[in-house]
Nucleic acid binder design. Structure first.
Lengths: 202, 202
DNA sequence: CCGGGAACTCCTCACTTGTGGAATTCCTGG
DNA sequence: CCAGGAATTCCACAAGTGAGGAGTTCCCGG
């Protein structure tokens, strides 16, 4: 039997040659897992398996499960900035363009994973809610014309959120199946009206 | 020592005298747990403990954890009917009345628990998503004028959902702190416009 | 060229979870 | 008044969890 397991065998332990991108693979897998199973439901073993890696490596790189989550969300949270930046542009067809850009963000599977991870965890973990609100508000508040965070922008954001939720999460047929152009036509006036609230104040 | 543990002692096993309302206590505790921890995160032992009951009683009454969830949601899902009924009433100030009624539903802690349980679980458990969509659509589809489920009603629902989410879950300051009347004034035109879509088709 | 540290794997521990069986006490219908 | 069932408890199990220790292989700076 000693002659049997010659060289490679089980590839046992030890460092691999070359660069491996393991860290990034773990973060991506973690985001997927947190998005689809929530914080508690996502298991480190499943994440490691998805990343093609030993579970102990997660501990090696990130320590805690909570730290893993924080890192994964922070890593992918550039999309939060892009989500709120969507409402920055002004102009004649600002509503149409905002909705179009916003829906585009939700249609990217990677972004969807981040969003679902944040919202899903925010629903079940108070401290995650804190950080989510913090990140969202830091952006929203920064671009208010009047200094405070503007009701118009917030209402526009609420419509966009509800729309994306209905279309991509709950998947209500009439909204999920509607052609993009038609959706834009129907919802753009709403966004335009909300955004105009901040421009003609008292 | 025999004289010591006279009567009550550890209250060991056996049926309790009188009615107990245990079933209802379990359902209520389950709803709380699912709302705050999600489907996976809620443990049967924690639910039983919250209800002041032995974990095995859950199995006795409901069998599966999934069945428990289904029962708990179905039990509290009168609110789903009320949520979609909100969009039934027509008239001059239909938008205002719909928003007012809808927000009222979210402000009841019991209802909020059901909603959070459904949404939180829908985000993290595909099979729960199926049943959630089914329940919602059975109601929404039933009152469509054209026979199919109407885009106008669905869009109105998406705005209401996003609004409630921003106000009660994420708690964006400018939306959460806004007086009810002001909110109604700002959002009612949107709802009115969406609902009018179904009335003047081609 | 060699030694320290980084990358990586295996194994184990203590704990929690969902599920289920068996026993006990009480209520109620005949 | 008594038998059957309902309500309730304790105990046990197998599986999965997060955490951590110990060892192995490789890379790179001196």
């Amino acid at each position: 039997m000693a002659g049997d397991r010659v060289a490679r065998a089980v590839r046992s332990a030890g460092r691999r040659p070359g660069v491996s991108g393991t860290r990034e693979a773990i973060l991506a897998a973690a985001l997927r897992a947190f998005a689809t199973s929530g914080f508690r439901g996502a298991s480190l073993r499943a994440i490691a398996n998805d990343a093609g890696v030993d579970p102990a490596l997660i501990r090696h790189y990130f320590g805690d499960k909570a730290s893993l989550f924080a890192q994964a969300v922070a890593d992918g949270s550039g999309i939060v900035a892009r989500m709120s930046a969507v409402l920055d542009q002004r102009g004649p067809d600002q509503g149409r363009r905002a909705i179009d850009a916003y829906l585009g963000l939700w249609e990217d599977p990677d972004n969807l994973a981040v969003i679902r991870a944040m919202i899903g965890t925010a629903m079940t973990a108070p401290e995650a809610l804190e950080s989510l609100r913090g990140v969202l508000l830091a952006r929203v508040a920064s671009r208010a014309p009047g200094g405070a965070d503007s009701p118009g922008v917030a209402l526009a954001a609420s419509q966009l959120l509800g729309l994306a939720f209905a279309r991509y999460v709950i998947q209500i047929p009439s909204v999920a199946a509607m052609p993009r152009d038609e959706l834009l036509d129907l919802v753009a006036p709403t966004i335009d009206r909300y955004l105009a609230l901040g421009e003609a104040p008292a």
